[in-house]
Design a protein around this nucleic acid. Structure first.
Lengths: 191, 191, 191, 191
DNA sequence: CATGAATGAGAGTTCATTCAT
DNA sequence: GATGAATGAACTCTCATTCAT
């Protein structure tokens, strides 16, 4: 597969992502993707042989984006500020969840219980938060909690908000309340 | 619709529920349900005209079960005990989520953003918890928190655990940790 | 599957047979059969799920016809006469082989080495001939040969003529010569 | 077409032959041959424009091999010996028929009734045998039979054994019995 | 000459939905 | 009411064949 093909593959992944965002996972057919990419029926099969295969690659692309995000966080000042920034990003993500892969990813996970991509992404998040919390504790910015358990708790609340956003809608205010509680549980307030 | 028809409809809903538990929502065809019910293809159409319609009714049945649960709680003694019992029930529910309608319900919600059934069920839960928390505060068993916000927080954590259980699996211990944190945030420990 | 369905299945088998006669085995698609039967695409799948399955049933039908033939032979007079009649039937069969299932059956056998239908039909032929030859020997109409080996030899010559007829064509005279040799090898000529 | 091209064409024919041996005729696609030859899709079309065309040339190659065989026979001593050697070769050929082009050739012939390649090969065999038998008769090694008819009979038995070997399997013993009968019908046994 | 990406026709298969009985 | 055969639309997937490079 030459240079040109790599570009085409990339194009397919981009267009396919839009389709998955719009239609979820199960609902998407190879034809949908063919139409979105404006290529021939057979053409798509040169690159991928099922919607599942395409979705897996789209998910990996997402993962990369997340990594980039995680690293860009590293440049900021105090741990509390980084944490606040992280939560702010999460809020954005939660509120626009209907315009992301989130629903499709859940559907995919339901259909593929063996696949561990979501789990890995979750664990990556936990690990990052854990590290952050440890730093906060060391700096005496955070209460002396069990960093791992606290990290997991944050991730579960975020998951809860995400699925709630997808299935019943949540207001910005609601998210703020939840995130505020998370901060409160960790950050030592100055008097 | 006569007596007999009502019974038949009930039978269909029961069998259909098993199918939805096993296969989710999108994956289920009218044929699957026809096969499970051992009725004729045409026969099913006398009662329901799509899997969506069937699923909606199945979901309502579930709602009733939940109500029953909520009321049975009422017989217990202290608020803390009731709360502990509630969490214990939730733990069970979370750990067996793969054997419940949960995944199908989420899939259904993704496909039907307008439908408010899940939202109503969530809100019912919030209301019940809010009432409980208010009672706890009055009894001085619970800290004096914002009951509504606390109730919502609990529900979001539970949602997070449920979707995590469905998509990546969670251990009993993990659930315990989370539920313990929820208790800790509310119940005033005696010294 | 009710009365009506059995008739339809029969109709499909008849029409399918014509298609197999005309096009062989591998070349035949479900669509070909659908067109020949003037039923819907999906309709055919109610009865059969592949051309192979259809062909197998068509072959069995043929087998029955052969059995009928074998028995009808039993009514005639001397063994030599029966034998002559048998060869005459075979000649007809060989010369019209292009209008029978023969080619399709060979193709099918190539594609399904495990299937023993052809072998069984061959063995049935051998058994019948062997019995006939034994009777001929007892009656002193036939030379005292090894009945089993002689029977097999006849069947192999007939197979050779059949495949030759299909792949290169044979004249009636050629068949006559071969069949005459077969008779000569068995029947004791009166002086 | 230059020297190099001829080599390439030869390579294609060799590899294609392996494919035809393995898969028969109808089952083989241009893609199969492209894959086997490790050339480009377009490249194959520079030399051949269909599997049929390729198969025709492969068949001619086979014909040459047979000729070589026929001539190599010429070096041996008595006619009976040559005849025995010929039958021995045929036995080998029959028993390994599943590893030869035989099935593909029959399939090809079914699909191309106009093609006379198989007929020519058959007639070449008949002619060779006829010549041999005439020599045997002259030498008084063979009975005084009609050489042409005897030659044809031998060829038909061999065809019968070949197709039987392909479609239902034959044992070495069975082949021996048949070939022994052929010898017996010709060779005058010394007392 | 040679490549291999791309096309589009066409086969296989499944299902929601209808309708005569 | 109930049945289940029948339909046809929609999808999946494969290949022969072409063509820009």
């Amino acid at each position: 597969m030459g240079e040109r093909s790599v570009q085409k593959k990339q194009l397919i992944l981009e267009k396919a992502k839009e389709v998955f965002v719009e239609k979820g996972f199960r609902n998407v057919t190879m034809k949908d993707i063919v139409d979105a990419c404006e290529i021939s029926r057979g053409g798509l099969y040169l690159y991928f042989s099922s919607t599942e295969e395409i979705f897996r690659e789209v998910l990996l692309t997402k993962e990369e984006e997340d990594h980039v995000l995680a690293e860009s966080v590293g440049e900021n000042a105090t741990v509390s500020e980084i944490f606040a920034l992280f939560l702010k990003e999460q809020k954005k993500e939660i509120l626009r969840s209907k315009k992301t892969l989130a629903a499709a990813a859940y559907e995919y996970a339901f259909a593929n219980p063996k696949d561990t991509t979501l789990k890995k992404q979750f664990n990556t998040g936990v690990a990052m938060l854990e590290k952050l919390i440890r730093m906060g504790i060391e700096n005496e910015e955070f209460y002396d909690v069990d960093a791992r358990i606290a990290a997991k708790n944050i991730m579960y609340v975020l998951e809860g908000l995400k699925i709630a956003s997808l299935t019943m809608g949540v207001s910005g205010e609601t998210v703020d309340n939840e995130l505020y509680m998370l901060m409160q549980g960790l950050v030592i307030e100055e008097e």
